[in-house]
Design a protein around this nucleic acid. Structure first.
Lengths: 228, 228
DNA sequence: ACCTGAACACCGTTCAAGT
DNA sequence: ACCTGAACACCGTTCAAGT
């Protein structure tokens, strides 16, 4: 329990920002953001709590650093022969995979805008390239891009907070519904009646397909494409 | 600063759950969720911090209570002559209005699934009724409903965290872009070049319209509607 | 029954002091 | 230059004590 004071001698590993961020990410992945504290992190690193402040400015900066770290993993290799729909699907899947690799961080991933800003740039470049290939006007490229990002954020947020617990079950909602007076919420009952014990499945892909279909409609309806 | 101890006499207003929740919501609306603490709330109510625990079980329960309170305000009057698109638009606008009335709470509104569960039931009933009217199969009603909710959540989250600060400016992103080496992010530059100083506008409605167009495509493509 | 006040086990962060 | 340790101003929550 006794630690050396002062600068570590050669041979001892020094504390670095990278090492701090990695440890913090591991802690968040394991226990959740709310269990991340400077003091816990320090004890994880076997270091005085205040040592961390020499490498990161504040807890806020620590979290942004983790977000950056995770966003840096986002890589979509642009396939050349792919249609614009396939490009967007590839991006969407990469984004979802990234988010679900760190479910406890999803809220911050989505929310901490100025962290991941660099990654956001790359993400939008990919997205806009695909949308421009769909022959949308610049205005519509931006709107369609925003829509896709909004949808993705909403989806991964729902998924990470366990909106639907397990395949097939729509847990809380069905439970709630069963407590309501008979005759209330008729449409809900009708829909779920035909759905109970239906396997839940590629919801993500279906929702994305609807969005893409909507964008396609707009593309066909809309003359002014991006100038080359 | 000296307060009476024990049960308040007749004539003095007693502390109630309702009063606590209202004060907490006001505090959140004014200062943000992160400034909400039991102790601050108590001092706002001119009461010992621990008095609150007699009416709400924990801070978590307090937050859920606020979320419930806000969701209870969500009311969409179903217009009879409306098309299913108009019904969904009405719902979407009501949801967005609700969220933007309490921007500091949006994250919890979206995230705290088991709070607002009752409101979620009503919301989904409205949504499903509209989608069933679009002649979608039960499976597709659920997917389309989820998509709309995902989109709405993603949108209001972005809007509440100031994704785009003010009309016309895409602040952070443009700033970031200007710092990058020339030639990088070609599509982004091309899109924004034709967009700078274009007024930002009814983005929400455009994004929603794309979603509705996508759902319409699916409705036409898909035979098995809900049985009456 | 309802409110109080001390206490416990935590926080993030500052700052002077060590090596 | 880098790490430590005490200190400050906070937290949420428990529990015994007041009226």
């Amino acid at each position: 329990m006794v630690r050396k004071q002062g600068r570590p001698k050669a041979g001892q590993e020094a504390l670095t920002q990278e090492k701090i961020l990695r440890a913090a990410l591991a802690l968040v992945d394991r226990d959740g953001v709310e269990r991340l504290s400077m003091r816990r992190l320090a004890s994880e690193l076997d270091v005085d709590p205040m040592a961390i402040y020499h490498h990161v400015a504040s807890k806020q900066a620590l979290l942004s650093g983790i977000v950056d770290l995770v966003f840096a993993e986002l890589q979509v290799r642009p396939e050349d022969g792919a249609t614009w729909q396939q490009q967007i699907e590839a991006f969407a899947h990469a984004y979802r995979r990234l988010a679900m690799a760190h479910p406890n961080l999803v809220l911050h991933l989505i929310t901490d805008a100025e962290a991941g800003a660099g990654a956001a740039l790359m993400a939008n470049e990919l997205l806009y390239r695909a949308l421009a290939a769909a022959a949308l006007s610049p205005q519509m490229v931006v709107r369609a891009g925003d829509l896709i990002v909004d949808f993705l954020n909403g989806y991964v947020l729902g998924e990470s907070t366990g909106r639907l617990g397990q395949p097939g079950e729509r847990g809380e909602m069905l439970a709630q519904l069963d407590q309501q007076p008979a005759g209330s919420f008729p449409t809900l009952r009708r829909v779920f009646a035909t759905l109970r014990n239906t396997d839940a499945l590629a919801n993500f892909d279906v929702e994305l397909a609807i969005v893409l279909a909507g964008i396609e409609v707009l593309a066909n309806r809309n003359g002014a494409a991006l100038p080359e």
